[in-house]
Design a protein around this nucleic acid. Structure first.
Lengths: 342, 342
DNA sequence: CTGAAAGCGCTTACAG
DNA sequence: CTGAAAGCGCTTACAG
């Protein structure tokens, strides 16, 4: 391992001068800077981050909190996997490395302890455990944070505009001539608002057409996976067999719901129309005609990295940044000969 | 930030004594050890890893190389995503953190530079770029490594027993009465042997039945995704319309292949039987009846972490560790009234 | 059983 | 424009 002192000896300059040349700061003559940089390259010098971190207090490490208790898919989550791919790329370009924070690290260190231990400079909260009290501690810790799903007071959230997506779904159904429309949700939580916001937008939009949304048409599934969708759809349909359409808050649930509908002999979209959410590749192959919403994972990741890098630089973050979700029109929505094109 | 010196002042001991007590080494009276540990806990002390790393040369960081150029799914890869979930869990239990190594980190640092920069103690090679010359440099660098897919001279590989899986596939078809069996492969590479080994096992097994494998029945797709499977199946089937079964090296390809077969009006398994590989959730929902092989991702990850941790401790690694893949029997294989049950 | 000294590789004022 | 000194927080021989 070659150090700054070796370089000092080789070039005849002092260690501080080497440091300044390599970091591009301080006042040095262009010539010495040049000499030193070349010597470093020739010697194959690589700085030692531990030493750097110790003296500067900057680790160039970004912590990531991703628990995914809701879907239990970890890296394979339909939104988070892709989001992380892009986020990682962005922060690497900026010279940061990713570090996963974990509850079971080293005999159960807390996130904050883990951060202090590694001098983590900023944190991306992808998906914490529901109502984890440590989230508030994080917000109070002074470590710059950004969240991409959960609302945590004091932390900026970069998230899809769920409400306008919900409106869009209602509009698509309405324009296609549907009036009895079901909503298949997932656990409503104030802090993790995906399901709730989609519902709000959906309901608001329907009401704007003068048609009150009948609460009987709402069914909240008790989880985010297939079987819950199957069970929820069964309940909803047995209660309200008059619905001609249903908006489901995620594709995994939609998949389960469709499975139920097909099992009882219904045809999609002839008997019942379906719109999902996520554009989940796992579901797409099975249901290539499912209309859905694609969350812009690249954009969310990119904005999140910008917000976080700015926060690290001391720029205050906005409270929330919304990213438009894109409606993907395929063929799971039936149109009743209406003239309004869509 | 509270340091070891604060603890020294509070307890009346010296810094080295604090260090020994906290790290559980050195000869200390149980009493002082106790006092110090309690004081540390009470003060909310967390060690500073940068300082530790600087003085011990141990960063407690494991680098991960995961490029996934073949499937381009990154964290969403059918094998690697799950593998990484488990691997991460294992090494975190041992007090290590994961660090992704990247080619585009900090103006294009090499993997090795990145490792030196962070004092990475060991490396998990999940999926490098094909024929990356840096892999040999890595093996020669002296940094402990383990690989879970690619064969790299000098690095231990923990990988599915592809050959016996290939044999199994042949046997399943044979026992079911098939004799004209196609093989749909993917690029054959010596170092990344998934496709090649499956083929070898498949061919060997068929030959053991006295039936030579006709090379015309082999078609090598030019990539690992759907469309390549579709195209490959088209070629194979147009050339050999007499086949009654086909073994496909991965489910994504199998999905494309089945799409083609269905499009030309074939029924699975009545007209043609299919066995895939991976038990890819992405495909499973679309083709719930597809027989396939499940790679034991948890086991691979666990063994890989063991090998790596051992290597870090100085124990030499075996050359290769094989993990059995499990045949998942569903209903995409037709049986011709044979009596041998399977 | 405990501590004084030196060192890990870097950077930050400060002096000249 | 360049360098001597001190410090970041920890650990490792070594001495007693």
């Amino acid at each position: 391992m070659i150090t700054i002192y070796d370089l000092a000896k080789q070039t005849g300059f002092s260690a501080p001068t080497i440091s300044k040349a390599l970091n591009g700061n301080g006042n040095l003559s262009g010539e010495t800077r040049q000499t030193i940089i070349e010597a470093a390259k020739k010697a194959g010098y690589t700085a030692n981050m531990a030493a750097k971190a110790l003296s500067t207090k900057h680790s160039r490490l970004i912590g990531v909190i991703m628990e995914d208790v809701a879907m239990k898919r970890g890296f394979e989550h339909p939104l988070f996997g892709g989001l992380l791919n892009k986020f990682r790329h962005e922060i690497e370009m900026a010279g940061y490395d990713l570090l996963f924070l974990s509850k079971h690290f080293n005999d159960g260190m807390s996130y904050i302890e883990h951060c202090r231990y590694r001098d983590v400079e900023g944190i991306l909260v992808v998906n914490p455990i529901d109502d984890d009290p440590e989230m508030n501690a994080l917000a109070a810790s002074g470590i710059p944070c950004v969240s991409t799903n959960e609302f945590i007071p004091g932390i900026c959230t970069v998230v899809s505009d769920n409400e306008s997506a919900g409106q869009m779904a209602a509009r698509v159904f309405f324009e296609a001539g549907h009036t009895k429309i079901g909503f298949l949700g997932a656990p409503f939580r104030e802090n993790s608002p995906a399901a709730l916001e989609r519902y709000k937008g959906f309901k608001t939009e329907l009401e704007s057409y003068g048609t009150d949304f009948d609460e009987r048409y709402l069914e909240v599934c008790d989880a985010w996976w297939d079987q819950a969708g199957y069970d929820g759809m069964k309940k909803l349909y047995e209660r309200c067999p008059d619905i001609t359409a249903v908006f489901v808050v995620c594709d995994a649930l939609a998949f389960g719901a469709m499975k139920y509908l097909l099992e009882i002999g219904k045809t999609i979209p002839d008997d019942i129309s379906v719109i999902g959410f996520d554009d989940d590749t796992t579901v797409l192959k099975a249901a290539p005609n499912l209309c859905t919403f694609r969350q812009d994972r690249d954009k969310i990741a990119q904005l999140a990295s910008e917000v976080l890098l700015q926060a690290i630089a001391g720029v205050p973050s906005p409270q929330v940044v919304r990213v438009q979700a894109q409606y993907i029109s395929r063929s799971s929505v039936r149109r009743f000969g209406r003239s309004i094109p869509f």
